[in-house]
Structures are given as C-alpha cells and as structure tokens.
Design a protein around this nucleic acid. Structure first.
Lengths: 332, 332
DNA sequence: TTGTACGCGTTATCAA
DNA sequence: TTGATAACGCGTACAA
C-alpha cells in the first residue's frame, strides 16, 4: 500500500479521475487511454487504498460480529455461515469476543465504528450501547435474543420444541427431571428452553446451573447432581456440550444411559451423533442462522429493507438412544 | 458516525485542532477550554471516525487472519488466542476463511488492504501473493508452515514428537502401521508428522489419505482401511479429529481399542481426553500459537523488531489408553 | 472524452 | 495556548 492513484495518473499521463474511472468502469474512457492507464497500474502494481475508497464511498464494506467466545461448535458454526455469506456479498468480517473482557462497551463501540452493520449474539453487548446504536441507525441483527425494537432479531424456535421434548420424556415414563445448564440471562435461547420444559413438567423439573455451557462444566455439575440423593431419571441439558459432559459423568459413576438415566441435549452438533449413546437433541440450523444474519444485515445496509424483522427458524426433535429406547432409531 | 469534529469545534467555539488535542491528550489545552470541548463532545455524542483516524494515523489498528475453515477445535483455539492478544493490544481482528472459496487471491489481497499485519495458516494464501506482500513489507506471520524468507513463521515441533510417538508404539510391539490423514501440502504440520513417523517406522507404515482432517473423513477412511485384509495394528492419525473418527469406525466394526487396534491423535483437543478410550496424542499449545502470532505481529508492525523470526513451540506426548496398556495412565 | 477541484474526517505541523 | 492548514488516498460532480 504505497503507490497512490496520483503516481499512476502521472505515469499514464492522465488525471486521477481518469484512472479511477478506468479501474471502476464508471464513466467513459477512450480505449487508448484505458490501455495507458492499465499499463501504468500494472507496472506500478497499484491497488487502491481501502481507507481512501471507504472514506470516499462512505462505507466500510465490512460487517462486525460480537460473540461471548469461540469455544465449542455453536458459535463457530454460526460464524462460519455468517462469514461465508458476508464474503459472498463482498464484505469482510471483523470479530469481537467479549468473554473475560473488561470494557466491553468500548470494544463494541470501536467495532461499530469499523463496520456497516453488526451481528450480536444474545446479550453480549451492553443495553445502553445497543440503544445508542439503534438511535444512530446502525444496522443490527441479534441472534438468540428476544425481539427488540429497532433491530432485526433472529433465532431458532425454542419454547415449543422444549415442550415437545418434555412430552416425549414423559412418554418414556420418567417422573423426576433436572434441567442442567440453567439460564443465565432472561430472554435468551436457554431461558426459553427452560421455560418451555417447565411449562410441561412443572415442579417435576429442577434447575441446575452450570458456570458456562461447556462439556467440562456439564461434567462437573452432573457429577454433583448424580451423586446426591434423589437423583433425577432424566436430565434435560441446555445444549449438547453440557449434555456430553453429563454423559461422561454418568459413565464415570457407572450409570447406564438410557436405562438408568436419560440425557438430552440441544443444537445437534456433530459430536451428538457420535456420542455413546448417541444423543437425543433438538437440531437447530446453526450455519443458517449466521447466513441469514449476514443477508438480513445486507438488506438493512443497502436500504433494500428498512423495517426490522424478527425471524424464528424451525427446529427438529432428533430422537436417538440417550433418552430411552425407541422402536427404531436413526441409523448412524 | 454522523457528527464530525468540525461540529464539535464550532459548538465549543474552538478549532478542530483543539478538539483533537483535547481528546487525544496530545499537546497543551487550557482547563477551561478543555471543559468546553468535553461538554460539546458529550452533548453531540461525538466519536471520532475510524476511517478519518486511520487515514491520518496511517494505520488500521487491525490484524487479519487467514484460515481454511473454522470447523473443529484447532483453528478455533488458535483464533481465540490470536483475538485475545490482538484485542489486548488495541487491534481488531478481520477474518477470512478460504475453504470452498474461489478467487482466494483477491480475497486475501483485499484483507491485506484492511489491516496492518496478517497471520496466515499453512498454505492458505497463494505463493505469489505472499511474495508480493513480503516485498511490500507487510508484516506477516505464518503458522503451521515451513520457514519462509521475509516473514515470521511459528509452529509446534512435529518431527521429533512424531519420532517419539513412533518409538513408543514400537515398544508396544506393533509391527504394521497406518498413517491416517496423509499430508496434503508439503512442508506443513501434517507433512512433518508423516515424515517423522516414517523415519522411524520405514515401510512398516502406510499412508492413508483423507479428504479433510475431520471426524467424518477419519471415520470413513478408517472403516475402509479396517475392513480390508491385512489391517494395521496401530493407526497414527494426522490429528485428534481424524483419530476420533477412527475410534468410531473401530467401535462400529467391533474392534477393541487398544487390544485389537491402537489409535493415536495429535493436538490434544478437549474431546481427546473425553473419548472412550481416552486418546493418546501429542499436545500442542494451540491457544499460545495464536497469542504468540499476535504478539509477533505487533512487534513487526510497531517496528520493535524488523528481522523475521522462526519459532518452534515444544509439544508433549500424552499417553492415554488408546495406544495400549501402560502401568499407570493419566488420571481423568 | 478528460481534467479540475471539492468532499470524506481525522492528525499534526507550524506559526501566531 | 490556540488556530490555520497541509497531508492522508480516493470518488465524483461539474466544467471544459
């Protein structure tokens, strides 16, 4: 990034306007002039400065994304879908991880200044900043969060899926349940799942918190839970990773799954299918969440749409071995 | 991003220079003036435009990262360490995934125009572009790649670890081996691992390619391999994910690990410890690779260092159950 | 078909 | 202590 448009212009014996027109294909350029310009560009290896272009165009051609952290497949998969579509639309992706960060407010604000639009997971951005960004008209898409005025929200269906899962477990005959990975924030995905199962199971299910939604935390919490007296017959987990941890704990304690203990997850990450026993879970279209977020953002940025949209993607209950025996299970 | 420094200056009754000085703390400002400026900034909710600042400062305050894809823990973990340190150093991170992308050259070039320095995995950037970037003096750090003139390279030790692993397997008494996940590019991590084990095992080990380094591909390839006649007694895998796939294949075929088949991985991702049987592997400091890359880049960008450095981080052989029986194994 | 000149939003130098 | 003003690199009306 050293040679500027002026040097190219001088070398080609034209003005910078002509160089710009030639390179962008905007406005007429005589064939001979065009040749000269392209030759100079070639010789000087000229590449327009991104900063100059952005400043002049008034846009960054970049999207931001804010997530708690990247450990585990969920955020990774969403990010994957997001980056793919953003790239397709000619936009770079600037990332920001908030976990363990101090001054998240400033970090998100800085990020907002670098992009044309922002995708935010759940409540990883401070509410007052969000309000300010909405006021400023910054295109915003929230994923895994309750609807919010002035911004798109995008999520997978939770409540009804949770109810279906709960009813299925009741059909297996279980009576004492635990919800492992109790919700941390109100209104996010996990909270909806918890509300859903509780609306069906009532006081038969108890909420058991974990520090994070990870295999390790699930393992620790499940071990404690399963060692105590009056252990549940079925553990509904906030997500697959916590559930994988619960499976480990059960195995370590010599509890047969599903005969002595049922376990369910959420998300249908790849490991869920490969787990022993394979994990009953609710499949949510992670990659599509990211892809849709990128498209929605593009609509808002280009002005193709100006009213917020709140979308809920459908999920699918995936019955496998970990929740009990079924006549026929999904083949590997 | 609407109100400019000019509006603040007018409101405060000062020049833009004074506003800038006040906000950046560069140069003297009278206390009373300072008050007026800050008040105007507050009332107008002024935030300096990133583009303006970058253009004037001549730097982006951003780092780029190029990786093949984000599926699986390896790239994710490295990215995690990278983003964390970059953020600590006041730099944003712009990502680029190349898998399945056409025109990678243009994408990487565009990325290079948005950042002050670039971290690149293996051979995910075209060689000619790399050469051009080096020539232009763009700070570059390569991870998982053979040393390269004009840029930092950073990797974990492979060859000697691979030899140690091979010798250990020989001690178990195995005689027929397979290397699952044969190297795709020469000079990258997997290639070094392959060269290492082969230098010890010679013709006793056969290279078995997989399409990608994933659980699924490992599973498919292992199933084919294990069904054929003359199956190996030990499978050395390119990485943990391929190894997890091999474990699945073995289980499906009713082969007891390690009694009828030994399996080893590489990386020591979290799932390696949780697998059944737990996976013997080589631990590589993934997060630290990312963290070091970010620091190295910072040194090159700030000019604290100007000669390339080629660093090799040490690894550790982690013996678990999957490669055979040991007197005492690492406790869970 | 081409060129001039202004705008984009800062920072920093230099003179006052 | 403060203010003009020149960069920074480009896009693009507008005039020629």
């Amino acid at each position: 990034m050293d040679v500027t448009i002026y040097e190219v212009a001088r070398r080609a014996g034209v003005s910078i306007a002509t160089v710009s027109r030639t390179l962008r294909g905007t406005g007429p350029v005589a064939p001979k002039t065009r040749e000269k310009v392209l030759k100079a560009v070639e010789e000087l290896r000229f590449t327009p400065s991104r900063l100059g272009v952005s400043l002049a165009e008034g846009r960054h051609a970049a999207n931001g994304i804010v997530f708690p952290n990247l450990a585990g497949p969920y955020y990774t998969e969403v990010l994957l879908g997001y980056e793919e579509v953003a790239s397709e639309l000619g936009r770079s992706v600037v990332i920001l991880s908030t976990k363990g960060r101090t001054r998240v407010h400033d970090l998100v604000k800085d990020l907002a200044g670098r992009v044309d639009g922002l995708m935010v997971f759940g409540h990883t951005a401070p509410d007052d900043l969000v309000a300010e960004l909405v006021r400023m008209g910054m295109p915003l898409v929230f994923v895994s969060r309750e609807p919010l005025a002035g911004a798109d929200t995008l999520r997978s269906e939770n409540t009804e899926s949770a109810r279906a899962l709960a009813r299925h477990l009741l059909e297996h005959g279980y009576q004492r349940f635990a919800f492992l990975g109790a919700p941390i924030a109100t209104g996010d995905d996990v909270d909806e799942r918890w509300q859903g199962v509780r609306s069906v199971l009532g006081s038969a299910i108890e909420a058991v918190p974990t520090e994070h939604y990870t295999v390790e935390c699930g393992y620790q919490a499940a071990r404690t839970l399963l060692r105590a007296s009056g252990r549940p017959q079925a553990i509904v987990c906030s997500d697959d990773e916590v559930a994988l941890g619960a499976l480990l704990a059960a195995e370590e304690l010599g509890l047969a799954v599903p005969d002595e203990l049922a376990v369910t997850g959420w998300d249908d990450i790849m490991a869920a299918r490969h787990a022993r026993p394979a994990l009953t879970t609710i499949r949510q279209p992670m990659r599509e969440l990211g892809a849709r977020a990128a498209r929605a953002l593009d609509e808002l940025i280009t002005g193709a749409r100006d009213t917020p949209r709140h979308l809920v993607l459908t999920t699918e209950l995936v019955l496998r071995a970990s929740c009990g025996h079924h006549p026929q299970e999904e083949p590997r």
